[in-house]
């Protein structure tokens, strides 16, 4: 009795390891590659023919002439952890030095996400960066506002999900508006502002 039970268990293990562990995923690889290869490969985005990331996965932006994304990394800090509070105040100081006109910074811009690679920011977090980017690049605020609106996604069926902007796609569109001449000028301005901003953050973090 026990011996036949043991054989049945052994055979069941092998058969379903093959069925569920190999046939099922490989069949799906086949279907996905035929049905929607770009999605199956990770929704890659290219600029001038080279891959610069995925439409789904966020990446950090430090150049002030780009829209900034959420702070990268995952810390698992608890709500009252002093490290969290110190980090958020540092991020607030950084955002305020980059965008002096704002009084309150939206929370998504100063907190880490769940994945550490959130592709999105809230639309208001993108809109508040427009004056800075317009100054640095010479692109009018109107054009930038239209760009942000164009890349704003709304909740599905009006309720599922939150309004959001894909930062990488927005910045790629922004880059395509820059001519080599404006780009050089913008880069110079941006480097200067970045130096100022990191100075301000450094001063602030010593203060706290």
């Amino acid at each position: 009795m026990l011996k036949s039970d043991l054989f049945a268990a052994l055979k069941t293990t092998v058969v379903f390891l093959v069925l569920c562990g190999l046939v099922f995923p490989l069949l799906l690889v086949g279907i996905a590659q035929i049905a929607d290869k770009p999605a199956a490969e990770g929704s890659l985005l290219t600029q001038n023919g080279t891959v610069v990331g995925s439409a789904l996965v966020g990446q950090p932006f430090s150049d002030p002439m780009h829209f900034q994304s959420r702070p990268s990394g995952v810390s698992n800090w608890g709500p009252n952890n002093p490290a969290l509070i110190a980090n958020v105040s540092q991020q607030v100081a950084y955002q305020k030095s980059l965008n002096p006109s704002i009084s309150l910074v939206p929370i998504d811009l100063v907190t880490q996400s769940g994945s550490g690679a959130d592709p999105n920011i809230a639309p208001e977090s993108a809109l508040l960066q427009i004056p800075r980017i317009s100054n640095l690049t010479g692109i009018s605020q109107d054009v930038l506002t239209r760009l942000v609106n164009q890349y704003t996604e709304n909740p599905v069926a009006g309720v599922f999900g939150e309004p959001r902007v894909n930062v990488l796609q927005l910045n790629l569109a922004l880059d395509s508006l820059l001519t080599p001449a404006t780009l050089n000028a913008a880069e110079a301005n941006a480097t200067a502002l970045n130096a100022l901003a990191s100075n301000a953050t450094a001063t602030n973090s010593t203060a706290t």
Binding site: R70, V74, W77, I107, D108, T111, Q112, N120, A122
Partner: peptide
């Protein structure tokens, strides 16, 4: 937007 530390915007 709420307590967004550790949460995704979408």
């Amino acid at each position: 937007a709420g307590n967004m530390q550790g949460k995704e915007v979408r």
